[in-house]
Design a protein around this nucleic acid. Structure first.
Lengths: 242, 242
DNA sequence: CGAAACGTTGATATCCTTCAACATGAGTGG
DNA sequence: CCACTCATGTTGAAGGATATCAACGTTTCG
């Protein structure tokens, strides 16, 4: 099931910067496999040694940590085009797990070839670093939410962020996009309980912010939802925009 | 006030991997300045454009984000040897601020020379990526705390982490190390209020976990403090270790 | 059809925030 | 040297946001 990088559907979406033929051919060389995994698979386990590096080709995944007593925190979500396993590959062992949220396709970049990438293709090495920094910025944003935003603000912020990321990948049509998280995932990402997440989402839904059906989510009032993410004040949130 | 990389005191501490003469001389070349800034300086502002990259030579700093209404979240702390401004440099603009927590010395690696580093010194480019991943892992850990740990657990986890980082740098002697955070910094890093941070610290202090004096902190019961970071149960926490 | 996963709702408990007051120490100008 | 201010730390009381518990509804799927 070898999928050639020359025909990569992902690159075609326009999000990614153009790549020279030489770079492309190099990528095609080090890509050593194309995996398809079902939703729920643990792609990388905490304490895995010798972990490989992947690129998400299609589907969603998430990074998470758990405490000994089972409390779980989702760190960030991975969408097509994201690197998967960079931290693990740099440290020879993961401090976190990664789980497939949907059925997922991955391109394998074996650990032992990463060094060649740095040595021979500095532009690509730069891109790896860039992607790593972008992932960190997602974690930053989530930490800002969990530390300082109310439950309603957190939910609003996460939905808006995921919407924008999906949109950039061309996965949104008319405000609707596939939204594979259940309420437990949301709760674990936002540092809330499942029950409170449910009640707060119900409130935002009643306010007309979004609707959900068949695993898809539709933003029905993106402007206000974005405003809520910055500061939720029941009285103010719904006033007409100036 | 040019400080030569050949005599870098930081490298001498043994934490950093050995570097070839050629690498060292390259670093010495691109290092374009040595800054000394007083505590409280904003080194990088949110929305700065054209931000440079630095290495912390001595002192502490922290990365943070603020919401429009002033709520602040500290993302992570920067100690000697850490890169400062990588995310900002990769994106041409910072999504966060960085502030000096103590008086601080920085080595300047100008933005325009980063590319040369990737092109000419792949080992160093690799180190940059490695340092970026390590910073992300600190943010991960803090997110785990803020999302899923109780106040006492968060404080314990942060103090233990900072202790270990300081120790690795040789900044600890007999369980004591310089601890420049005030309670507002702790609260902002942990997603807590200043008042509750104070009360919870008082409790841990009363339990004999640590003492503070003259800007220094001493761990008086590191084993138990580490256990508390994983799961705090008043009844269980103080039982003798098996 | 039955079981399992997921979502919903109300009642109660608790952790943490907010407010307010006061204490302490460092720095500053008179 | 003293009064003053400002930043920081401390403490109690009261309120609120979120957790926990428990029950039930709904959907999915073998």
């Amino acid at each position: 099931m070898r999928v050639s990088c020359f025909k990569c559907a992902l690159r075609a979406c326009g999000l990614f910067k153009p790549v020279t033929p030489a770079e492309l051919s190099f990528i095609n060389d080090i890509k050593s496999g194309h995996l398809t995994l079902p939703a729920g698979t643990e792609i990388i386990h905490a304490d895995d040694d010798n972990p490989d590096l992947y690129t998400v080709y299609s589907g969603w995944a998430f990074r998470f940590k758990t405490l000994p007593d089972g409390r779980r925190q989702i760190l960030n979500f991975l969408l097509p085009g994201d690197l998967l396993g960079l931290q693990a590959a740099m440290f020879d062992a993961a401090q976190h797990g990664i789980e497939a949220l949907t059925d997922i396709e991955l391109c394998l970049l074996p650990r032992r070839k990463i060094w060649a990438l740095f040595g021979q293709r500095p532009e690509l090495a730069f891109d790896v670093t860039w992607l790593g920094s972008r992932e960190e910025s997602y974690v930053d944003e989530n930490l800002m939410s969990v530390g300082r935003r109310s439950a309603a603000e957190r939910i609003a912020a996460l939905i808006v962020t995921l919407y924008k990321r999906a949109d950039a990948l061309g996965l949104v049509s008319k405000g609707t996009f596939a939204f594979p998280l259940n309420q437990q995932h949301l709760a674990d990402a936002l540092g809330l309980s499942r029950v409170h997440t449910n009640k707060t989402m119900a409130r935002l839904r009643r306010m007309g912010m979004f609707t959900q059906a068949n695993g898809s989510l539709t933003l029905t009032n993106p402007r206000v939802l974005e405003r809520i993410a910055q500061h939720f004040d029941e009285e103010v949130a719904l006033r007409p925009l100036v």
